[in-house]
Nucleic acid binder design. Structure first.
Lengths: 173, 173
DNA sequence: CATAGAAGTAAGTAATTACTTACAAATTTA
DNA sequence: TAAATTTGTAAGTAATTACTTACTTCTATG
């Protein structure tokens, strides 16, 4: 991974996440990266390849985000960790997650299968704790995640610390 | 509003909502509407004007959606109606709402001020009912709305009837 | 019915798009 | 150090883009 290659990826991430994939030309990316346009195609084949390279990095980020919680066995801790999840994303990664959310709507990158392991472990946790509707409780957590994270990433001002406490108390965890 | 004008609006709605605004050329809209491309510009000025015309229709739809709940004074009924809100959107309007969600991410159409009246009335209701954190409870409802509606509009299969009951019981309304 | 204005079209336009090609410089390998 | 490969660029390309122009057809009204 050369320096210019990283410049391209950084510029593309910034532009795709803020202006959108379709609204960002390869020309714009090249200029922002301080690189000739041809180099993008040399390294990534085509515009989609550039996006794919960006999303590849994301896979690991998803896994490391879910890893800790999926391996947990104590149901209360599972729910606690699940609730804490969106609050633990460092602000330095917001651009990346904004891209994730944007693509979910701009392209048909569903992300449905990405939340699937989280849903499964949450369902298990709610089951163990005797909730009447464990599957729906699990979905509800994910919906809250999506709604709240979407708002945060779009810049709606939220007292994250206070909201985190609010949710933890709601679920007694 | 002539017939061809409506054809343009219908075609644009369908294409913008499913393929995205930036990914849809005026040429594509014209062909889908069975109309010359020039007619789009005669009637709507430019591509943005076409989008604006589409969103104008939406304002009324927002208002009629919120009207019933904002005028309610009984706190329990407010919460009940707020929860029912997303479930009452007829499937025939899904394309329109998909466009709303898509634009929120594709352009910087925030929609923050659109949920503001709902937030206010919900905060009032939770206050009256003695909830400790009425403002956060209100936000939570909106987050659930956004997360759930997003999933539904993206085609994730959900038993809407069952989930509606689940939420109503959770809030005892 | 005459005529003005609105509705509609076909065939353009310049600019931008994603992508290529031909070639040079840097770096690795033998 | 010579050869091969990789990294990089400048200047293209054809296709597509949003939008215009010049013109014709419809439709309402005095």
């Amino acid at each position: 991974m050369t320096e210019k290659q990283e410049n391209i990826l950084n510029a593309a991430l910034e532009l795709f996440a803020n202006e959108g994939y379709n609204a960002t030309s390869t020309n714009k990316v090249a200029k922002a990266a301080g690189v000739s346009e041809g180099l993008i195609f040399r390294h990534f084949g085509n515009k989609e390849g550039l996006l794919a390279a960006l999303l590849k990095v994301g896979e690991d980020r998803f896994k490391s985000l879910y890893a800790d919680i999926v391996m947990e066995s104590d149901p209360e801790k599972i729910i606690r960790k699940a609730i804490l999840l969106p609050f633990q994303v460092p602000e330095s990664e917001y651009t990346f997650w904004k891209l994730q959310f944007k693509l979910k709507w701009e392209m048909e990158v569903d992300g449905k299968e990405k939340t699937e392991p989280l849903l499964r472990v949450l369902k298990y946790a709610f089951e163990k704790l005797g909730y009447a509707e464990p599957e729906k409780e699990a979905s509800l957590i994910v919906f809250i995640h999506e709604g709240m994270s979407g708002a945060i990433l779009k810049g709606v001002p939220i007292d994250k610390q206070a909201f985190q406490t609010f949710l933890l108390e709601k679920y007694n965890v």
